[in-house]
Simulated scan of single mutants.
Amino acid sequence: MTSRFYELTDDMTQPERWHLRSPVDEHGQKIDPWQFTEGRRLEPQGVIRFPVRPEGVVLEFTLDSFATPVVHGRVVQLFERLGIQDVQFLPVEVEGHAGPWFILNALRILRCIDDARCAEVRYFTPQDGQPEKVGEYKNVRGMRIDPARTEGAHLFRPWGWYLSLIVSEDLKRALEREGLTGPVFTEV
């Protein structure tokens, strides 16, 4: 079992990199970006497009302005070779850039944050005025994952802190070997 895990983000330090904006449909209407953090399989509904502003260096792994992972087809091929199952790749168009491009939709959410080892965790309370979130994480700083609670997963989102995308050390190494542009790994 893998005992080290990493939060996967994109390389914000890349000079003159491109930036993907929020997804829109074929009519230019915004699409709910939070659906891609819920850990559930989605049925494609029309064309999903990502505007690019500003243009710049293309990254094969990119997070849009709402942290939706958008990947090049090379990432899909790698996941297929590795046999990683807990993921759905939704085809998308990236404005002005030939594909293939996909949203990486992680299908597992695990209760695996090790609160005691994190630098700071705060929870929503009734005083926050959001009763639907009481007991969920309000802030997680210096996140740490409890490997014993990861159920052998290689890709997942931590329960309560859904914007984070976590990968196993094995998947991290495979992504690095592939030489993809964009991924950055922070041990958690």
Rank of each mutant, 00 (worst) to 15 (best):
N105I: 00
N139Q: 15
L107W: 09
E151L: 12
E136C: 07
T186I: 12
E136P: 05
E132P: 01
V58F: 15
G160P: 09
D11V: 01
G73Y: 10
D170M: 05
P23S: 04
P131L: 03
F102I: 07
R173F: 07
P69Q: 00
L59I: 03
L175T: 06
E151N: 00
P44R: 09
Q85R: 15
W159Q: 13
W18L: 14
K172R: 15
A116E: 15
L180G: 02
E95P: 07
L104S: 02
L180Y: 02
F79A: 04
T62I: 10
Q14S: 12
H72S: 09
A153L: 00
R21Q: 15
G56D: 03
E136N: 14
G28W: 07
Q127A: 01
G56P: 00
R177G: 08
Q29Y: 09
Y6S: 02
L180K: 07
E120M: 12
G56Y: 11
L90A: 03
G160Y: 09
E26K: 12
M143L: 15
L175G: 01
T13V: 11
G182K: 06
G135S: 05
R40E: 08
E187V: 10
G73Q: 04
R117H: 13
R81M: 11
V140M: 00
G83P: 08
V134Y: 03
W159E: 15
A148V: 09
R21P: 07
V58D: 02
V47S: 09
K133H: 14
F89M: 05
R53C: 05
Q77H: 15
F89R: 05
V94M: 07
L82Q: 11
Q77A: 09
T150M: 09
G56S: 02
V47R: 15
E26F: 07
D11Y: 05
H27E: 12
A119N: 10
F66L: 10
L180S: 03
R108D: 08
T125P: 02
R157S: 05
I103E: 04
R141T: 12
W18Q: 13
S22G: 15
V52E: 06
D25Y: 04
Q45L: 10
G99I: 13
C112E: 02
D64S: 09
D128H: 14
V188G: 06
V184N: 05
Q14Y: 11
L20E: 05
F66G: 05
V71A: 06
V58G: 02
V92C: 04
R157N: 03
R157G: 00
S164Y: 12
P158D: 00
L165W: 07
R41C: 03
W18P: 01
V94I: 01
P147C: 03
R144I: 06
D86P: 10
P158N: 00
